[in-house]
Amino acid sequence: MSVALQPPPVSSTKAEIPRLALAGVSKSFGALTAVKDVSLSIRRGEFLSLLGPSGCGKTTILNLLAGFETPDTGRVLMDGRPVQGAGPDRLVIFQEPALLPWLTVAENIGFGLPQKPRELHDETVRLLLRLVHLDKFGHLRPHELSGGMKQRAALARALAVDPQVLLMDEPFASLDPQTRELLHHDLQRLWLGLHKTVVFVTHSVEEAVRLSDRIAIMATQPGRIRRVLDVDLPHPRDFNSPEVAELRAAIREEMQDELAKLARREGDEGWRP
C-alpha cells in the first residue's frame, strides 16, 4: 500500500497512432439515437473513464469499441485499423462477472489460455489465481464465490490472454463499498504493473477520479462526449487533498447540468405511477 506507485508512461506524441479511436461515431437503435457524433482517442497505456448517468450511452460506446456493435456512421479504430468484430486484443469485462457456471474458478481463469501443454497451462492459472488472491478457491464453482471474488476471477481470466486493451463496463457497480474499494486497489496495482490500456465505464465520480488518467464526461440524449478532463495527480490519490476535492467539485458541476436536463425531461413527460 505504501509503495510509491508510478503510472506507466503514457505516450502522447502527436504523431503516434492512438491505441483506440472513435471518429465521428453515431449509433441508433430504432428511433433512439444512443450515441451521436462521438470522437475520442485513447492513448497506449492510458486509463480513461467514460463517466455519465445511466442511459447516456456508455455501454453503447464500449460495445462499439469491443466490436459487439458496428457504428451507423463514423469509424472505430484500433492501432489505426478499423475494428472488425470482437477479439482478445480488446478484452471486455462485463458488469456481471460473466463467469461460465459449468467451469471451476481455475478453469474459468484458464479459459482463454492455450490448453496445452498442460503443465504450462496449470502453472499460469496458479499464478493468476495468486495475482487476484483466489489461490484457495480455484476448485470452487462461480456460484460459490462472493460478488467481489467473481469479479476478481473475471479480471484474472481477462489478464490471462494478455490483451492490449481492457474494456470494463461498470465492473464494480453491484459490489458493496468495501469490496469495491479493495477491487479498485487490485485493479490499480495490476494496471500500474501491466501497462494495459483501460477504458473504464462508470457512473461514479469517485471511481473515475480515483482511477483515471483522463475522464470523458458524457452528455445524455443523445449520448455525446461533453468534456474530457486530464487528471494529473499521483497514485494512490488522497481524497482529502484540495486537488482531488477541486476536481470532484468541477466534475459534479459539469454533471449537474446533465442531471437537471434529465429531470426536466422526465418532468415534461409527466410522472405516471
Partner: peptide
C-alpha cells in the same frame, strides 16, 4: 452475455459451439 464472453476471447465458430 455468455455468447459475448466467447466472442471477446476470440473463439472460432466451432469453439463457440463446443465451449459456450
Amino acid at each position: 452475455l455468455l455468447r459475448r464472453v466467447g466472442q471477446t476471447f476470440g473463439l472460432s465458430r466451432w469453439s463457440q459451439i463446443t465451449r459456450i
